[in-house]
Design a protein around this nucleic acid. Structure first.
Lengths: 324, 324
DNA sequence: TTGTAAGCGTTATCAT
DNA sequence: ATGATAACGCTTACAA
């Protein structure tokens, strides 16, 4: 195993000088620097990262904990990864499939200093279990959580949903049905938004039954079939996400209906699918949330790099709602 | 930071004794052992893993490199993870999305000893790039590859596909159409299998056009629409995977056709979807491949734990083909 | 059964 | 501008 000492010996200098060259410190004679670099190249030398970690007290690895790997978490994780790399950190991904033990593996790695920090996208263990690990290193979550120990980059769905509803109202829609998911705590906030919205504009909040637990393309197709059977049809449907909106749109199309002529459809998340099908949807800045997570972690690790982004939903206007 | 020295000091023993207790070595006085464990508990002490890694020369982390996170890779990765954990290794997952740089990040971590080994499920860089890293630690692949440096746990698709075709023949199907994917090198092997099959039973190999690049549910639906339009219909369709088979089956159902009465459908991979829809399919022992990968890696790391499994495809008989 | 001390490969402090 | 030398926290001969 070739190490820094060997490089030093071959170059006829001390390990200090070699270390200086490697870490780009100033005050190294240019000739020596070149010579040392040449030897490093020749011996194909790389600093041993365990030794570095031990000395520095950090591994520069951040763990990301998620239950499943979905479209939504994908964009977060990719952005997080990119941002972390930018600051010299690598990401260790844990896909737990809801297994508590797997989650504990990650938490224990934080405890034993194999991880410098942890981002918790989804969790299976109770929050107090997770919180009890916060003393070992920064833990940041993507979920709604109010905690002194664990900061969150969560975004309140109330605002996002309200943004969509207000938009539909502007476009003349008055008979709006809701399709809710039920994963997590988003649904109650969306329901609250819809109730406030209906009250504000004096609309009947219970004109149509709410759908629940709908989040797949197939679910959207089911909603389409429901819609076609109605005599008293909604003029717009606000969907839990783009998948549902996509299923709804395509199934209606198969039966000869078209958007936005026959119905307005609103998606959520602004995924590739929404782009593909020209769905009006609500953009969820997962990438900025991810960057915020990195900023917060680095801040907690004592190296401030940037203020956090202000997070805002954005309405993406496409072809599944009226343009007038 | 509480370390082994502090424990030793508090217990009035040497660090050696503490280390012995931690690592469950024999020859430690039972009373002292108890006492030391109590102190460890009280101070919430955990050995620093960077120090351990440095001393032992290994991190006990294995990297898994994949392009995307699909149903197929999921079962491999889960099984790999479980098996690795069993032998005290953790898994660091790299989802590259086809980004070469990301792949190099993982390879470089192997080089700098942050990873003890690497499993390559998919790769974007050229094989010789990947091979050039094999000298830094064990690299095992899931893809077809003949290399001195990089062992493979690949399974030849020829056998699997032939198994399915022979089964269809047994069940009386004679007019079989193929739907191929084109990811990787599997398709040519499957084509070869079909040609050999057709020759063996004197069937027309080109009676129906081959489908290519079909691997999604939507693709399956497309095949269904093609099938319905034909006057001279195949009596069975061998699909590239369960997704295609599922799309085919459900789309036909929507139009009033049923399996196996109107057509036989054969899936591939034996995913959850196949189970859900009662698809006859071919089981691909990804979990055993994963375990083999672990065995091979540990072997290369100098600790033999088990002989590799013999890998065999298995036909899972369900309701999408005739039972007679 | 226990302890001493060397060493894993770095980086950082302090001289020079 | 460069070099001794002491950490970082652990394991492991070797001694006792």
């Amino acid at each position: 195993m070739t190490n820094i000492q060997e490089i030093a010996r071959l170059a006829g200098v001390s390990t200090t000088t070699v270390s200086r060259v490697i870490n780009q410190h100033p005050y190294v004679n240019e000739t020596k620097r070149k010579e040392i670099l040449k030897i490093i190249e020749r011996l194909d030398y790389v600093p041993n990262s365990s030794a570095k970690s031990l000395k520095k007290g950090m591994t520069r690895i951040i763990g990301v904990l998620t239950g499943i790997y979905t479209n939504l978490s994908t964009s977060f994780i990719q952005a997080f990864n990119a941002s972390a790399q930018k600051y010299g950190f690598n990401v260790m991904l844990f896909i737990t499939n809801g297994d508590r033990q797997q989650e504990l593996v990650a938490l224990e790695m934080l405890r034993s200093k194999q991880l410098d920090a942890l981002v918790c996208l989804f969790r299976t263990n109770e929050w107090d279990v997770i919180e009890s690990y916060a003393k070992y290193g920064p833990i940041v979550t993507w979920q709604r959580l109010v905690s002194d120990m664990i900061p969150s980059v969560f975004m309140d769905q109330y605002q996002g949903y309200m943004l969509g509803l207000e938009y539909l109202y502007t476009k003349g829609y008055r008979r709006i049905a809701n399709v809710f998911s039920s994963k997590g705590l988003n649904t109650p906030e969306r329901i609250r938004a819809f109730n406030d919205f209906a009250f504000k504009y004096q609309l009947k909040a219970d004109e149509f039954p709410d759908f629940h637990d709908k989040f797949t393309i197939f679910d959207g197709e089911e909603v389409a079939r429901w819609w076609m059977k109605q005599t008293n049809r909604p003029d717009a449907i606000a969907c839990s996400n783009d998948n549902v909106a996509a299923g709804l749109l395509t199934e209606l199309r198969r039966s000869g209906f078209s958007t936005p002529d026959d119905i307005g459809i609103l998606g959520f998340d602004n995924t590739d699918l929404a782009h593909l099908l020209d769905l009006t949807t609500i953009h969820y800045p997962a990438n900025k949330q991810a960057e915020n997570a990195v900023y917060i972690i680095l801040d907690m690790l004592g190296q401030h790099v940037s203020e956090v982004h202000v997070l805002e939903f954005e309405l993406i206007e496409r072809k599944s709602t009226k343009s007038s």
